[in-house]
Write a protein that binds this DNA or RNA. Structure first.
Lengths: 269, 269
DNA sequence: CCAAAAGTGTTGATATTACACCCATGT
DNA sequence: ACATGGGTGTAATATCAACACTTTTGG
C-alpha cells in the first residue's frame, strides 16, 4: 500500500477496525478435570507483529453496523454460531498504530454456544491460520490484545449473574451440579452447592423439567432448563436492566448492550 | 464538501467522531429546590438536523487519543476543567449517517467540577451556539443523542457508589447532609440520612476535618473531606475494581475505564 | 452396606431498613 | 422555649456463608 512517509501517515484519517474476543466453554471434561474456556486466535501474516497470534478482526465496512462487522470476524474464524455478543470497549490510542496509521479498534466479546468445541478444534483449526487456545495458556499476543482478552474475561465473570449469559454456556437440560461446575469454571472459585442451589432457585430463572438425570451410582438429579422469562428476571445486579434481543435476526443471537441497558433505551430496536 | 452520489458516499470509509455528554451539578439550590444536573448542547449549523440541539463532538484527529479528542470537545464548549472522563459506548449503525457518510461515534461522559455553574450559564452560554440545559428538561435532540444522554445518566447513577465520581460533584469540605442531597439529586430518590451517614462512615472514604459548619439556627454539622485513599477503597460493588488515575496529566482529571477495570489491566499505565 | 452426589435444615454473622429519640444551636 | 436539621440507638428483617445432616441411587 503506497503511503508516504511516517509523518504523512500519522496525519492520515484513523482506520476503524472491529476486533472480537470469541469465547467458548469446553464441553464438560469427562475426565473430571475442570472444563476451561477457549478462544480462537489468528496468526498474523503481515507486519507489524508478523507471525504472532492476534484476536480476529477486520476493517469496518462502510455499509455494515458495528455488530455486523463483529459478526463477520466470527464467520472468519468459525462456522459455529455465536449466541451472545456485547460491545466491550473502543481502543484508540494513536500509539496503537498499524504501519504508522492511527488505529481505532471497536472491540466485542462473544459467546459461542456450548457446542462441541472438540469438532471445532479439529476443523477450522488447521484449515486456516486459526487456532484455539485455552484462555489460561495463551501465547504472547500482538498489539495490546492481551489486555483486551483479560478485560473480556473480567466482563464475562461479571456477567455470570445474567441468565442470558449463563444459558449460553450450558446445554439444556442440566442438573444444578452441572450448572455450578460451569459457573465455577468461569469464576475460578468454588461454590457451595447448597447455597448455589438456593440462590438459583430463588431467582425464578430456572424451571424443573420433571426429568431426572441418572448417572453413575448415585442419586439422580433433577433436570432444569432456563425459564422463558429468564431474560426479564435476572437474579442480581442486572435485574432491572436486562435487555431482550434487539437484533432479531440470526436466530438465537443475543445482542446485549453494555450493562444491558442501552438497547432498552433504543427507540427503534 | 464535494462528495459523489449517495451510493458512492455510502461506500466511503466511515468517519470517526467523538461525542461527549458533559454533566455538571447545579450549585446547591439555596432556595431549597433540589439541585439538578445540567449539560451543554450545541446548536447544529449544518444539515442534517440543522438548527437542532446536539451533543458536542467532533472528528477524531489522527494524532490524538480518544481521550484527548473527548477532552477537546469539552474545550469547545466550556472553559471549565472536567474532573472525570469515562468512555460510554461506541455507536456505529450505518443509518447514523451524516450526509450519507457512515458515522461511528465514540461517546464519552464527563463530570465537571462542582464549580459555579451559574457563571458558566452566563458566559460561554450565549457567546457561541452553546447552551446549558437541565437534564430533565431537554429539547428534542439531533441524531440518537437522546438515547446517548439517557445512557450516560444511567451510567452516572450506577457510578455513584464510586468515591471518584461522587467527589467530583461536591465541594470540600461538606456536611453529610449536603452529600446526601447531592446523591439524592442524581439518584432521584430519597435516602434515610441516618443510614446514609452510617454507610458513608463505614466506607472509610471520608475523613473528618474537625471543622463544623454553623449555618442557620440549628446544630452545627461536622465537615468532611474525601480521604486520599478513597479511590482504592470504594464502598460497594466496585470496591475491587476502582482504578487510579492512569492519565496522569491535566491536574486532577480522572480517567476511568468502563467498569473501572481496564486501566488496571493496562500494562503501561 | 457403602460411596457419592443430591437435596434439606440450621445456625450465626452481617447488612439493611424503618423509625424513635436525643442534641446543639440561633432566634 | 422551640423549631430545625445533626447525630445516635435499636429492633425487625433480609441476606449470606458455613456446615451438619438426610436421601437416593448403583454397585
Amino acid at each position: 500500500m503506497g503511503y508516504g512517509n511516517v509523518s504523512e501517515r500519522r496525519s492520515a484519517p484513523p482506520q476503524i477496525g472491529v476486533t472480537s474476543v470469541i469465547l467458548a466453554l469446553e464441553s464438560e471434561a469427562h475426565g473430571h478435570a475442570r472444563c476451561r474456556l477457549w478462544l480462537p486466535l489468528v496468526q498474523r501474516t503481515r507486519e507489524p507483529f508478523k507471525g504472532m497470534w492476534a484476536l480476529p478482526g477486520g476493517q469496518l465496512q462502510a455499509n455494515r453496523s458495528l455488530e455486523e462487522s463483529a459478526f463477520a470476524t466470527l464467520a472468519s474464524t468459525t462456522d459455529l454460531h455465536p449466541t451472545y455478543l456485547e460491545q466491550l470497549y473502543t481502543f484508540g490510542d494513536p500509539m496503537r498504530s498499524s504501519n504508522g496509521i492511527p488505529m481505532v479498534s471497536v472491540c466485542y466479546w462473544a459467546l459461542l454456544d456450548h457446542t462441541d468445541l472438540g469438532a471445532e478444534l479439529g476443523t477450522a483449526a488447521n484449515a486456516h491460520n486459526v487456532r484455539w487456545f485455552p484462555v489460561d495458556d495463551l501465547p504472547e499476543l500482538a498489539f495490546d490484545h492481551t489486555t483486551i482478552v483479560e478485560y473480556a474475561l473480567w466482563r464475562l465473570r461479571h456477567r455470570m449473574d445474567a441468565p442470558n449469559v449463563v444459558r449460553q454456556l450450558i446445554a439444556e437440560p442440566f442438573t444444578l451440579g452441572q450448572l455450578r461446575d460451569v459457573v465455577e469454571a468461569v469464576l475460578g472459585e468454588e461454590l457451595d452447592l447448597a447455597n448455589f442451589r438456593r440462590k438459583m432457585l430463588a431467582s425464578h430463572t430456572l424451571e424443573d423439567t420433571g426429568e431426572v438425570a441418572r448417572e453413575g451410582r448415585r442419586r439422580p438429579a433433577a433436570l432444569y432448563r432456563f425459564a422463558d422469562h429468564a431474560e426479564e428476571e435476572g437474579f442480581a445486579f442486572f435485574a432491572e436492566h436486562v435487555a431482550g434481543n434487539p437484533h432479531g435476526a440470526r436466530g438465537t443471537l443475543q445482542v446485549d448492550s453494555p450493562d444491558d441497558v442501552l438497547s432498552a433505551l433504543m427507540p427503534h430496536a
